[in-house]
């Protein structure tokens, strides 16, 4: 009797220890939630929905995706930041929060988050309406300098990709264009084809098929080294060598969690997303999508984010497009 009682006790203690151990190693033990900072059908949404089904089998739990768009991503960063630091709420975001501080939109940026994975980097191309006489960036810049404020650039509003590239071009060439903001890259490219704007810097994702079909012409790609598959598009540094200091630059898509989530959750998430981003399926999707898989996490990703923020905010500052100087937030000069 006594013997069996001891045995039972030992067993239960062992079992308890075992389950405790399992529990600690067993993040996640319930469904996760993923907040996407842009609306359904946008680039960030597409990337999120492409990677998540590849992550779920590795994690062994589902990630329930919700679009929480608004405030150029500020709604989502604030939301995820207000959730418990348990690793169960993820943020699927693009580059935008890195500009929120200097544009006065939000006090939160990616410094408050742990970069689980910067999944991919977009390539930027400057495209022009076919009816324009320009054949190179030189022609465009010369035209914009000769007729200040009349060449129309498609934009997506302050903080958007065309806005930043426009600011960089302005610093490098001192040209003057009229930025017409649209609801996103897609509507901007539509307007470009209709001749309602003259040129537009845009992610390759949004324009590649239109370049291929010959509906718009590509003037330059924002890179100083040739990009596989885009060899026929001139590099921006060929016509504007001053642009080199901003490179490499482009939009990016990533997954983030709060900075102070438990270490085992960090490790589990990082591992799961790294495995997913390394799959052939995701690589193929990204290639079709017009982006380059980066698949970086942790410190390496943090360095990437810091560099991106420094280059971008200071070039906006240089042309007077910031509300608050990056210096106020301790963002180092590039």
């Amino acid at each position: 009797m006594k013997h069996s009682f001891t045995k039972a006790l030992v067993c239960s203690t062992l079992a308890g220890l075992l389950s405790c151990g399992l529990q600690a190693a067993d993040f996640p033990e319930k469904n996760l939630q993923g907040a996407i900072m842009w609306g359904a059908g946008g680039a960030t949404d597409n990337v999120a929905r492409a990677v998540t089904p590849l992550v779920e089998p590795v994690l062994g739990e589902e990630i329930v995706l919700v679009n929480k768009s608004g405030g150029a991503g500020a709604i989502s960063t604030n939301y995820v930041n207000s959730r418990p630091s348990d690793g169960y709420t993820l943020l699927y975001g693009a580059e935008n929060p890195q500009l929120h501080k200097v544009l006065g939109l939000s006090k939160i940026d990616y410094a408050d988050f742990y970069p689980v994975n910067i999944l991919a980097r977009g390539v930027v191309v400057i495209v022009a309406n076919n009816d324009k006489p320009w054949t190179s960036m030189k022609d465009l810049v010369a035209d914009a300098q000769a007729n200040p404020g009349t060449v129309k650039m498609g934009s997506t509003g302050p903080g958007g990709l065309p806005f930043v590239v426009g600011a960089m071009l302005k610093t490098a060439t001192d040209f003057d264009v009229r930025a017409v903001p649209f609801d996103g890259e897609g509507p901007g490219i539509t307007a470009l084809q209709g001749g309602h704007v003259d040129f537009m810097p845009a992610g390759l994702t949004a324009v590649r098929e239109h370049i291929r079909a010959g509906r718009v012409k590509a003037l330059a790609v924002l890179s100083d080294t040739p990009i596989p598959g885009l060899e026929e598009i001139p590099l921006i540094t060929a016509d504007i060598p001053e642009f080199k200091k901003f490179l490499p630059w482009g939009p990016f898509y990533g997954v983030f969690a709060k900075r102070d989530i438990p270490d085992d959750a960090k490790a589990k998430l990082t591992d799961a997303f790294q495995q997913a981003a390394a799959t052939e399926q995701f690589g193929k999707f990204m290639q079709d999508f017009g982006a380059v898989v980066t698949n970086i996490s942790g410190d390496e990703a943090d360095a990437f984010l810091k560099h991106w923020q420094s280059v971008t905010t200071w070039s906006l500052e240089a042309v007077g497009e910031t509300k608050v100087s990056p210096a106020e937030f301790g963002i180092a000069k590039p």
Binding site: G39, A40, G41, G42, D45, N46, R49, A50, G186, I189, T190, Q193, R208, E209, H210, R212, A213, R215, K284, F285, D288, F289
Partner: peptide, 29 residues
């Protein structure tokens, strides 16, 4: 053209990408 006519077709374009198709003006060809 690969341009969404409304919010739903925008999402369907995303689905086409994920399934390895290339929505755009070349899709018809």
């Amino acid at each position: 053209l690969g341009m969404p006519g409304d919010a739903v077709t925008a999402v369907i374009i995303g689905a086409l990408y994920i399934h390895g198709l290339k929505p755009g003006p070349m899709m018809m060809i």
